[in-house]
């Protein structure tokens, strides 16, 4: 199984850590089939930070869950696609091998540090569990390693804190614990951070982002940062992929995207960025008028058509193909914004 998975995807470029080709994920609900992710292509290089941006419900979290194969099935179904991690197709790995990747080479931190830690175990025990699982360490040794990690994520008095229960720690502390847990592996390759700072205070947000950046460089891992906050993107990301209603609509290096956005939706996202990036209340996407379409009733056209200022007839009929704008900048739009900012 693993062999075939490696062979079929051996033709990968150098430097690629994670590659997603043509991924489609659906949820079969009582009301119908929700196409949460459609024909998604993504690439993360070793050591790179990719920001996956979009409004809630655009499919970014589903993508993250698909990478770790934690999409609840049923009702979720992976309709098509390949997710390559260091040349191995994760979607065809046996569950046991997938599990040994989770938490060791691919780790994940979540939005709500309040609820993401188990309330009835001490934080030290929970971090130690990762070592017990992946390195078969004894409890005592694992706990000692957990204390080291708490020190690494700059928690003061780590030996004492390791014996605390989650509810005794502040939100920022808990997110540090989550990060420590994600780092609890011998060779972290990819860390997926699903809205890691959304639930935190502004000052704490900045600290956590800084910590993530430092650790990333120190450990040499790649980061998939899921967010709707363009301020966070500007501070942290190397590349940005913008998603809308299950589709990737634009993908570019961060400077290029901020300087030269081509998709009207991206422009809308950046337009919301009217005040300082660290002010999280200013980053909500409210200034794009209209609302996200119902994923149940999506037709063939561009899903953004109903909210787009540049809409043309063909936008209603077909989803546009990939266009490129210079090296490494892709977008899908029938009527993109030109570099001067006006519509063609």
């Amino acid at each position: 199984m693993t062999d075939t998975a490696t062979i079929e995807t051996s033709a990968t470029g150098t430097g690629e850590l994670l590659g997603i080709d043509n991924l489609s994920v659906s949820f079969h609900t009582r009301r119908g089939v929700v196409k949460a992710v459609r024909n998604l292509n993504l690439k993360i290089r070793e050591g790179e930070t990719l920001a996956l941006v979009g409004e809630s419900g655009c499919g970014k979290s589903v993508t993250a869950h698909a990478i770790t194969r934690l999409v609840p099935m049923p009702p979720g179904v992976i309709e098509s696609g390949i997710i390559r991690f260091r040349g191995t197709n994760l979607l065809s790995l046996p569950e046991k091998e997938m599990r040994s990747l989770r938490g060791s080479k691919i780790s994940m931190i979540f939005q709500e540090p309040m609820t993401s830690l188990n309330p009835v175990f001490t934080v030290g025990t929970q971090i130690a569990e990762v070592f017990v699982t992946h390195e078969k360490l004894g409890r005592k040794e694992a706990f000692a390693r957990a204390v080291e990690l708490l020190d690494l994520v700059k928690i003061p008095d780590p030996a004492k804190r390791a014996k605390s229960y989650p509810h005794q720690l502040s939100g920022g502390m808990r997110q540090r614990v989550m990060i420590a847990m994600a780092l609890a592996s011998p060779e972290p390759g990819l860390m997926i951070a699903d809205e890691p700072t959304t639930a935190l205070d502004v000052t704490i947000q900045a600290q956590i982002l800084q910590l993530l950046n430092e650790l990333k460089k120190g450990v040499g891992m790649a980061l998939l940062l899921i967010t709707h906050d363009m301020g966070v993107v500007a501070e942290t990301a190397d590349r940005v992929a913008v998603m809308y209603a299950g589709r990737k609509v634009e993908d570019a290096p961060v400077e290029e995207l901020f300087a030269n956005p081509r998709h009207p939706y991206t422009v809308g996202l950046l337009g919301c960025q009217c005040s300082a990036p660290s002010n999280r209340n200013a980053v909500r996407l409210t200034s794009i008028s209209g609302s996200v379409p119902d994923l149940l009733t999506l037709g063939d056209g561009c899903p953004f058509a109903n909210r787009c200022g540049n809409v043309k007839n063909e936008c209603m009929e077909s989803f546009p193909d990939v266009s490129t704008a210079g090296e490494d900048h892709e977008f899908r739009c029938h009527n993109p914004i030109t570099e001067s900012g006006a519509s063609s």
């Binding site: 990747l101 780790s107 993401s116 830690l117």
Partner: peptide, 11 residues
């Protein structure tokens, strides 16, 4: 969420 965390950690 903490069950998801444990699963994501490969437990």
């Amino acid at each position: 969420d903490y069950v998801k965390t444990a699963r994501a950690a490969g437990v």
